[in-house]
């Protein structure tokens, strides 16, 4: 029968053709030309309508077999080619992974603000709030209310910047403590820190006329030097490392009594003595003490009812110790080679 011959011939041709086609696209095109609506095989099958009913089943069966055979061959070849092509594509897409990546830029926090933020986090965790106040202060808040009498050397024009109207650039952030106490008295407890810029009339390799301080104040019932010591130990360990120790040396500040300087064990040598700690194993980090009864009274508290402690540290000093910065002036020059290291 002519139709059967044509089917067999087309099938043989198709299988041969599939064998030689060498791309997935070519196979797809060929599939359409053979099996699509207008395809060759489809055309032949359409011709089955002219067959006698007796022939139809056998021819129909053959047609299905042929179609399946071609489909299977197409699929097999397509899969084989797809795998080869993918392999080739992947091979071709190879990159030199040793080349550097796109460089995302990340911003640098100034080291002084980094220290202030870190200290703030530590004290927030200990139940402190942050209090702020003006940098231009009255002599009353900067000196008198802090128990610095008019004749005290600290009030000398040599040491503080004055404005023509008699205001002074605060020499420490303690005025904020007084302002807070006056605002809250007679209520307690008070637990605050006050970070900020302060000014002293000094300009040399180890002094900047403007620098930063963080001061702290606690007012409550039954506060003792032992509480202060424990608070500072917690701070020192969080700021500098869990293995650090502190020690207190008696000192003098008008605002506090008893007063102490606080040393932290040297992180460079672990306390054995080195250049950083000048061989002592300790480096000074802050000053502190029990709030002077006169300061409490002036701020509206009864020293017989409540007391408290205060401490203050230089942010530049902490940053220099923590990051081994050798020159104070780096902090204010903002050389990009410095800035980008933080």
């Amino acid at each position: 029968m002519e139709l059967i011959d044509r089917l067999k011939r087309v099938t043989a041709e198709a299988l041969a053709k599939i064998e030689v086609l060498d791309s997935v696209t070519a196979l797809q095109d060929y599939r359409v030309s053979l099996l699509g609506k207008k395809g060759e095989l489809t055309g032949i099958l359409r011709g089955m309508g002219t067959l006698s009913p007796a022939d139809r089943p056998s021819v129909g069966q053959l047609a299905n077999e042929v179609r399946d055979q071609i489909e299977v061959a197409l699929e097999a070849k397509t899969a084989a080619l797809a795998a080869t092509e993918l392999a080739a594509k992947l091979k071709q897409e190879r990159v030199d992974v040793t080349l550097p990546g796109r460089q995302p830029y990340h911003a640098h926090v100034h080291p002084l603000n980094r220290i202030i933020e870190e200290a703030t986090e530590i004290f927030l965790g200990l139940g402190f709030s942050v209090a702020e106040g003006p940098e231009i202060e009255s002599e009353y808040y900067n000196f008198e209310a802090l128990n610095v009498p008019p004749l005290h050397p600290a009030r000398d024009m040599q040491d503080s910047f004055y404005l023509h109207d008699g205001h002074v650039l605060r020499t420490q952030t303690s005025p904020v403590q007084v302002r807070t106490m006056q605002a809250l008295s007679p209520h307690y407890p008070i637990r605050i820190i006050s970070p900020g810029k302060v000014y002293r009339r000094d300009d040399d390799a180890t002094h900047s006329p403007m620098f930063h301080q963080i001061e702290g104040l606690v007012i409550d019932k039954d506060i003792s030097l032992a509480h202060l010591k424990s608070m500072l130990l917690m701070f020192a360990r969080q700021m500098f490392g869990a293995e650090r120790e502190i020690r207190l040396r008696p000192s003098y500040f008008p605002f506090t009594e008893p007063s102490a300087e606080v040393d932290v064990s040297c992180g460079t040598c672990g306390g054995r003595g080195c250049r950083v700690c000048k061989g002592t194993g300790w480096v000074e980090i802050l000053g502190c003490g029990m709030v002077h009864p006169a300061v409490l009274s002036m701020s509206g508290y009864d020293p017989e009812e409540v007391n408290g402690f205060a401490f203050g540290m230089g942010v530049e000093r902490i940053a220099m110790l923590k990051y081994n910065v050798e020159d104070l002036r780096h902090f204010f020059v903002n050389d990009y080679r410095f800035v980008r290291q933080f």
Partner: peptide, 19 residues
């Protein structure tokens, strides 16, 4: 001062927070 112990502060709990 080195013979003074450390003692954790007690008293009313305060909320450490920023304004």
């Amino acid at each position: 001062f080195n013979n003074i112990p450390t003692d954790i502060m007690r008293g009313e709990v305060t909320q450490g927070r920023l304004t």
